[in-house]
Design a protein around this nucleic acid. Structure first.
Lengths: 149, 149
DNA sequence: CTATTAGATGATAATAATTATAAAAACTTT
DNA sequence: AAAGTTTTTATAATTATTATCATCTAATAG
């Protein structure tokens, strides 16, 4: 945890940004909820627990900044809010998501899976891929068979 | 065109909805701009040209309805607005998109491409896929080589 | 050390997209 | 034609996000 914060700090410094206490508090919340897909409002509430003086605008600004630095990815599952998802350290590509239409859960797929598809797209559409978003909507293993957990 | 409207009308009727003049005008705009990725506001403006009395809320409701019927798909490219994209008639799967980070253009890929990936996901994640969203962000062929068109 | 300056923050106002509401209109059914 | 249902319009309300600006902080120059 401390090491990851240290590395993010370096990343900020390399672009001459500082890791202010507010930014650090925000990053900590993101690290502590790596599995989740928090909205800006969610992050704000969680940061407030530890740093009650923080303002909502600062959280938005910090998330925007972390997005620029590719520390987080901003995603939208079509429910009207942006969500912020920590990128795996050193991951070349953004991971994929499984959204359950029954229970609303969001699971992550870290495997690449798209290597072949991207080769085809780059060749056949003459398109240079910089990033991607892949989300499947369907029924998760929990809803499919409620007995398994 | 008329045939497609006729079929959409049938689809509505089968769920006991009517193809009101406002709904028809909205569908016509979508058909006339099949290549585009219009926001609700865009659709509203275009419908107004032919049917100036239409209200914005009706356009939203109609798009929502068409989305439920899977006549259109609602997508979000991360720019804060929902866009509505006509689904190819009889297409089992939603098509993919290429978003250019230089010029903002959005091209469509009608090919499936994901068959193999979906098999893996259904098997390894025990997930029943009902729908998907795949978008690539990168540099389109126009921006890559401005001389080609 | 203090004064200066640039960057960051907090409170809040402004904006923009979308949804909710309620009265009027348009069809349907009786 | 009357009653009932659905749809629409106009507009208010809501929600997420961004902009503004006075204040604060931290680094730097004198």
């Amino acid at each position: 945890m401390e090491q990851r914060i240290e590395r993010i700090k370096k990343q900020l410094h390399s672009q001459s940004y500082k890791l202010t206490p507010q930014r650090e508090a925000t990053v900590r919340v993101l690290l502590e909820h790596e599995e989740d897909h928090l909205s800006a409002e969610d992050v704000y509430m969680l940061v407030k627990e530890k740093s009650p003086e923080i303002g909502l605008a600062t959280v938005y600004r910090t998330l925007e900044l972390l997005n620029e630095l590719k520390v987080v990815d901003k995603i939208n599952f079509g429910d009207g809010v942006s969500r912020y998802d920590l990128r795996q350290e050193g991951a070349a590509h953004f991971h994929h998501h499984l959204v359950c239409i029954e229970c609303g859960s969001v699971d992550e797929i870290q495997e690449d899976l798209l290597e072949d598809v991207e080769k085809v797209v780059e060749r056949d559409w003459n398109f240079i891929i910089k990033d991607h978003r892949l989300t499947f909507h369907g029924i998760c293993y929990r809803c499919r068979d409620p007995k398994s957990k």
